[in-house]
Computed example of a mutant assay.
Amino acid sequence: MEIICIEKQTFEELRVRFCAFEQRVARVCRPVEDLGLKNWLDNQEVCEVLRINKKTLQAYRAKGVLPFSRIKNKLFYKPEDIQRLLELNYHPLIKNKS
């Protein structure tokens, strides 16, 4: 076995460079972070969730009731926007005080 001696400063410099290289490799090899793109819903899914037909959904878009994103002819909706729509239109039961 061969032993090589180097100065402490050189060793520290090599260690810092190796750590930086390790971080770059980790970033490249890490799977792409989920940016929430898997959660977007299309027309059919929104209609199923809200139990409405496509014409009603179209009216919601036209009136600005429900925000959407369009890529070519395909429409997408954020689940948070669907949730907000439901919460804004929530009407709790009012009990009569008798």
Rank of each mutant, 00 (worst) to 15 (best):
Q23D: 07
K74I: 07
N53L: 02
L75A: 10
T56S: 07
I4H: 03
K74T: 09
V32A: 12
L35I: 10
E13V: 00
V65Q: 14
K8L: 04
R61S: 10
V28P: 03
R27S: 12
Y60F: 15
P31K: 13
P79Q: 03
N73C: 05
K8E: 12
N96M: 07
W40L: 15
I94R: 12
L66S: 05
L35G: 12
D34M: 09
P67K: 07
K97C: 08
K95S: 09
R61W: 01
F11W: 05
I82W: 11
L86P: 02
V46N: 02
N53W: 03
M1L: 00
F21A: 15
N43P: 01
F76T: 15
L57V: 01
D42F: 06
N96T: 05
E33Q: 12
K38L: 10
C29K: 14
C47V: 00
R70M: 09
L86Y: 04
V28H: 02
L57H: 01
R24P: 05
L75V: 14
E2R: 10
T10W: 00
A26P: 02
T10A: 15
Y90I: 03
N73I: 05
A62I: 09
Q83W: 10
V46E: 03
D81F: 09
K54N: 04
S98K: 06
Q58F: 03
F21S: 08
E2D: 08
A20M: 10
E2A: 11
Q23Y: 11
T10Y: 02
V25Y: 01
G64F: 10
C47F: 00
L88P: 04
L66C: 02
H91K: 15
K97W: 09
W40V: 15
Q23F: 09
Y77G: 06
Y60G: 09
A26F: 04
C19N: 15
K63H: 13
F68W: 14
F21D: 06
L37N: 14
E45H: 13
S69I: 11
A26M: 00
Y60I: 05
L88T: 11
Y77V: 01
R61F: 04
K72Q: 10
V25W: 02
I52W: 04
K72H: 07
M1E: 07
A62R: 13
Q58W: 06
V16N: 06
R27G: 08
P92D: 09
Y60S: 06
L86R: 12
A26L: 05
N73G: 03
Q44D: 13
V28Y: 01
E22S: 06
R70P: 06
F11K: 04
Q9A: 13
I3Q: 12
R51W: 00
S98E: 05
V28Q: 11
I3C: 00
L50T: 03
K95G: 09
C19D: 15
F21W: 03
C47S: 03
I3E: 12
A20P: 01
E80V: 08
E48T: 05
L93M: 14
Q23L: 11
L85N: 10
V25H: 01
K8N: 07
A26V: 04
V32I: 11
I94T: 14
E2H: 05
